[in-house]
């Protein structure tokens, strides 16, 4: 270990450099996972190898893109990157809704609804944090906007996917109750109030749990990264608090908007529960 460490170039901040040779060495850990998978017949060997190669390619590509964005200093390039991130997150959130039959129109609706909800929830949060809290200069500073947006959108995506899944299953399993409300003259919003509440709750409980256990169970990735990069732990902690609060707010906005809008697609204009629950 000492020998290995001594051979490394050490940067100004005291960070140990990771070379390509080091990456090749860490690949040994993937091989351990492959070996264990084969031993226990999990069938995940291919998944581990393909996943490792994809992670490598994706991250290296992102690294070069980030270098380009950081040096190009064009506001529109930064916004374009944010849009691409939003679109990939939307695509991932929609694709996760598997199971029931998909009708083209319903999928398009889910795309619009998830995409817009994430845009609003994440966009408002990002603008608030970067412009009013951190007051980054220039306003589009990619070193802040891109990683922060990545974290917000990633969480919002999980929230949106969970909420959509849960809303559809709640409406399906509580059809009788929903129709009983409708039959008494309730609006769709009232008839689906309880399923909607449960969908929002399920989508937001991970955010609450995250706030409750942060620092106790795990050190979040960003904070770990900053500490590894030689930052003072106290600054890293303050950043992490900003991030946690930002994720809670962004996910809550996205989830609530998503559920309130998505549930409309389950009802007709005449307040009827659509024959087949969409998506």
């Amino acid at each position: 270990m000492l020998l290995l460490q001594a051979a490394h170039a050490v940067s100004d901040a005291g960070t140990i450099d990771v070379t390509w040779t080091d990456l090749a060495l860490t690949f040994a850990l993937i091989l351990v996972a492959v070996g264990l998978s084969r031993w226990q017949q999990l069938g995940l060997e291919r998944g581990f190898v393909v996943g490792a190669v994809r992670a490598l390619v994706q991250l290296v590509a992102v690294g070069y893109i980030l270098i380009y964005l950081f040096t190009a200093e064009h506001w529109w390039l930064v916004l374009l990157a944010l849009v691409v991130m939003l679109l990939s997150a939307t695509s991932a959130a929609v694709q996760r809704r598997r199971g029931a039959k998909r009708v083209a129109g319903e999928r398009r609706a889910l795309w619009t609804i998830s995409g817009t909800s994430m845009l609003v929830g994440s966009g408002v949060t990002l603008a608030y944090v970067t412009q009013l809290v951190l007051r980054v200069q220039p306003w589009y500073e990619p070193r802040y906007l891109i990683p922060l947006f990545g974290m917000i959108v990633g969480n919002a995506m999980n929230g949106a996917a969970l909420a959509a899944e849960r809303l559809a299953s709640e409406l399906e399993s509580h059809r009788g109750e929903v129709e009983a409300y409708l039959a008494l003259g309730a609006t769709p919003a009232r008839a689906a109030a309880e399923p909607s509440r449960r969908a929002m709750y399920a989508a937001l409980i991970p955010s609450v749990n995250g706030l409750m256990t942060v620092g106790l169970v795990q050190l979040p990735g960003m904070m770990t990264g900053q500490i590894l990069a030689g930052q003072s732990p106290l600054l890293a902690v303050r950043y992490q608090i900003v991030v946690m609060f930002m994720l809670a707010g962004g996910t809550a906005m996205t989830t609530v908007m998503m559920v309130l809008w998505y549930r409309r697609t389950f009802f007709t204009a005449a307040s009827q529960l659509a024959a087949r629950v969409p998506v």
Binding site: G176, E177, E179, A180, L182, A183, L184, G185, A186, T187, S271
Partner: peptide
């Protein structure tokens, strides 16, 4: 809404 309050419905399985 008014129609459904005027014409009540009782389902096969009570919800």
């Amino acid at each position: 809404g008014a129609l459904r309050r005027r014409v009540g419905f009782v389902f096969q399985r009570p919800a």
